[in-house]
Nucleic acid binder design. Sequence first.
DNA 1: AGATGTTTCTCGCATAGTGAGAAACTAGCA
DNA 2: TGCTAGTTTCTCACTATGCGAGAAACATCT
Lengths: 253, 253
Amino acid sequence: MRETSLESPLRTLKLLEAVVRDGAKSSVAALARETQIPVPSAHRHIAALVDAGFLSPAGYGRHIAGPKLAALSGFLDEKLLMANVARPILDRLAKRMGCVTQLGIFENDMVTYLVKSGQSAGDLFTKVGMQLEAYCSGIGKVLLAHLPDDARSEYLEAGPFIALTERTITDPDLLGAELQQVAREGFAVDDEEVVTGLQCIAVPVRNSKGEVIAAISASRATQSDHRRWQARQLPLLQDAADEIGVRANIVLT
Amino acid sequence: MRETSLESPLRTLKLLEAVVRDGAKSSVAALARETQIPVPSAHRHIAALVDAGFLSPAGYGRHIAGPKLAALSGFLDEKLLMANVARPILDRLAKRMGCVTQLGIFENDMVTYLVKSGQSAGDLFTKVGMQLEAYCSGIGKVLLAHLPDDARSEYLEAGPFIALTERTITDPDLLGAELQQVAREGFAVDDEEVVTGLQCIAVPVRNSKGEVIAAISASRATQSDHRRWQARQLPLLQDAADEIGVRANIVLT
DNA sequence: AGATGTTTCTCGCATAGTGAGAAACTAGCA
DNA sequence: TGCTAGTTTCTCACTATGCGAGAAACATCT
């Protein structure tokens, strides 16, 4: 059984990583030892990285990250970092709860979904990177509920709120009340408000300052033990949200 | 004439770059077209990147930067970004002036050289990443001159200032006076104070708030037309410093 | 439905990358 | 200055590695 993934490129990446991690402290030979790569090969790879611009020489056989790498990192925006932080946690959660988990953020009056996980994730109509109206989904309601007061009022006045199912809340006043409740209780419920046959619960993800920076949700096909399910899963969801919050703080500026 | 640099790894990197640049907009096949890489190969490479953690799948054949890449970018500190911003500018300057250009920053009472450029750059004894006493070099004097008053006083009191050549300024009071002049005039001159036979001029690099964040210098073998050379080159140096300052502001936080 | 466009196989081939060893360099020390 | 220990660079024959056409499975859009 052959490892079918490109081997030589992986070596290059392994070295790139090793070099960047250790600043300009170690010689190529030392890095070769660390990465279990024969010395001459290590030199070849690093030379290639250098003249591709991913590394720069830094005096006597030392190397540091190069311009191309810096340029790349310019594309690593907050959204991306957030997604990468959250993914493994949501994966675990989805497995444990046996349903689909998602993470979304608020972006110009809509929810952008950054992560989706779970075995039946394909069934769900949302897609990663997709934007969706905020007023109907669990994640959306959580995010709206924790908006600054004036922004939320503005949103409620702007409308319109179109019904996606017969249960979608379309009245601004009712929606406002619902959002107040969400803010008070710390979680939101979506019971077939966006798609018939789908219910979900959602909680906010907070950074260390307590600001809501995202929301995560767990969804499943509608079943009867509604409230019991909510009650049992909420703590799990909240733990995951906390963990994402903590990790995000490490990564984001 | 053999292309001695590893080819397959470079393809992988090319793809990595392409994928990250375009967010999650294009399909693998499209990227393959862009990068002139056959479709099946592109798939192999991207698959390898994915399970090495440098890319993450983002729904329907789209990909975005992965956790490993995000982690790497954590190691791209300010020094590095500064170096990468400055390098091309200093390269151009060195070519134009026909001498060696350098960039240094102030770090625990010494100058750390981040960039060195110019055809005879190898001759000069300084090395990238090297630390050198601040009091004698042009770059060092510029950086000292723009230190907060109390920090500068402290530095002057601490000493000792050892002579590297017969022209090195070793008296704290004289050095203090020299620094005042440097601050006033906006540039520093080193006339064989660090190595006999080498003279240089240096100017500060400022960020948008006017703070001095680095200094750059141009050095050449001692010649007689001293002042004339200084006068002619200073504007060029200063332009380069300004440009570096502007660009640095875009990149650094 | 059919019609694009994209992803995933399989497979033999040639090249691209490998790694031991030895030679050329470098730095630091006596 | 001449040593030694630690690097970097080269050469070279080998074979594993990555290649790419083509066709088949899978999605997407009208």
